[in-house]
Design a binder for these strands. Structure first.
Length: 422
RNA sequence: GUGGGCGUAGCUCAGGUGGUAGAGCCCUGGAUUGUGGAUCCAGUUGUCACGGGUUCAAAUCCCGUCGUCCACCCCA
């Protein structure tokens, strides 16, 4: 084979594709139940949007973007995440003028140039939701509630939410100062990497897996939040408590995108290996302004589809399973293709899903394939039938069969299925 | 970007210390001339990832490349 798929991408088909659809369907029903409507934004945007929104110094922007120039020399980038696009679309379409809270969900491919690994791909898929236009911590709670429910509707046992507040432009810079001062005392104990990034973004040290000992001794941002952030955070916890939503406070939790303010959360799963985050999200009250809009507070989350599918529990209540095809029309002999297709069309009009087998293989193979496709009925069309303008209909369950005129096949199948109480 | 394991049939994998490739599943045909899920019989399937080197001889040893998996890192 001359061509292979680009590194870190996947071909989706067969059972996996079916399960994907099933999961997507459940999630869509769920979020629509919360009043969220779908938004689809382009898979590529002007590069500057991501630089401004996600942050120049983040790993995503500095080394993971698929950036290219179009024929007019404009710099475009395949979206590494979707929140920036949703905010851009929100502002560009003047949706801020509608007032109230705008609630959107999205699903689709994202692109990051990373070394592929368990649960990490260069093209991966996210489903997420954004609630734009409110600073009420109750909306944060709604978002956390939804992101947890995604897993419960897919049959997951209750998962752990790690929760933190990352402050805002008022308190975070002050905390950074405190942190940097504190870090100075532990210079030799930090790993090489952390010593370097300590200058650029000291908060990221909390992400490091090696510097565990030092992390415990550092000050926590939650002890240094400004009045507004502190109140928001404690109010959120009250609401979550009241709703019975369980969470674990994690003062070490930080987010890798610069736009986050106040609430930050992550849902993790132990079965994923190193890439253990199933979903993550938080508040981004400054993003609208970064994108050239006014002050518009917002919260959202995003979940990785591949990671969800890879950890889907055995108990996943899969949809009906078999029976995807109602009827298989089996042509016998080498004439009559047209009649077979025409009959299939008629049956489809009556609402049945129909597969045709016009291959020259053996009867045994054709019936076997029909059975595997889950067909409840096989319709034989051979020289005898064609001559009499009839077809033999076989009930695959009972094995009984009858010769019927073309017009009678649809009603017959319906009757047979009713008898079975379907 | 760094490190390690692995690349043999469509799939899962055998192929001690070098001698030109195998099994199961799948697929196809038959036993059953136009009737499935079982059984039995027969058959097809390969640039042994790619390129180079060592050798009379390489799937096997060496080097490189690519892919894949895992970890670092990062994050969904």
């Amino acid at each position: 084979m001359k061509f292979s798929r680009p590194r870190g991408t996947n071909d989706l088909f067969g059972e996996r594709m079916e399960r994907w659809h099933d999961v997507e369907g459940r999630i869509v029903r769920l979020v629509r139940g919360y009043g969220y409507s779908e938004i689809r934004t382009p898979v590529f945007e002007m590069t500057d949007l991501f630089i401004r929104a996600v942050g120049k110094a983040t790993d995503i922007v500095s080394k993971e973007m698929y950036t290219f120039s179009d024929k007019k020399g404009r710099s475009l980038t395949l979206r590494p995440e979707n929140t920036a696009s949703v905010m851009r679309a929100f502002l560009e379409n003047g949706l801020h003028r509608k007032g109230g809270i705008s609630r959107f969900y999205y699903m689709g491919p994202m692109f990051r140039y990373d070394r592929p690994q368990a649960g990490r791909y260069r093209q991966f898929h996210q489903v997420g939701a954004e609630a734009i236009g409110s600073s009420n911590p109750a909306v944060d709670a709604e978002i956390i509630d939804i992101s947890l429910s995604i897993y419960s509707v897919c049959g997951f046992p209750p998962l752990d939410v790690r929760l933190n507040s990352v402050g805002c432009p008022v308190c975070r810079p002050a905390f950074k100062e405190i942190l940097i001062r504190s870090l100075a005392g532990y210079g030799d104990e930090l790993c090489q990497n952390c010593r370097e990034r300590g200058m650029v973004n000291p908060l990221r040290i909390f992400d490091c897996k090696k510097c565990g000992e030092v992390k415990k001794k550092l000050p926590f941002i939650t002890d240094h939040l400004c009045r507004e952030c502190g109140e928001h955070f404690s109010r959120l916890q009250e609401i979550l408590d009241g709703l019975g939503i369980r969470y674990t406070l994690d003062p070490l939790l930080v987010r890798g995108l610069d736009y986050y303010t106040k609430t930050a959360f992550e849902i993790i799963h132990p079965g994923l290996g190193a890439q253990n985050a199933l979903s993550g999200g938080g508040r981004y009250d400054g993003l609208a302004e970064d994108c050239g809009g006014g002050h518009i507070p917002a919260v959202g989350f995003s979940a990785g589809m591949e990671r969800l599918l890879e950890t889907l529990p055995e108990s996943f209540p899969g949809e009906t399973g078999d029976g995807r095809v109602d009827v298989c029309i089996i042509l016998i002999g080498d004439s009559g293709s047209m009649q077979a297709l025409s009959l299939a069309g008629r049956l489809r009009e009556s609402g049945l899903s129909v597969l045709t087998d016009l291959s020259g293989r053996s009867m045994k193979k054709k019936l076997g394939a029909a059975s595997e496709a889950g067909a409840g009925f096989a319709v034989f069309l051979g020289p005898d039938e064609l001559e009499r303008e009839k077809a033999t209909v076989k009930n695959m369950m009972t094995g009984s069969q009858e010769v019927l005129a073309f017009d009678g096949i649809g009603p017959f199948i319906e009757r047979e299925r009713d008898n079975r109480g379907e």
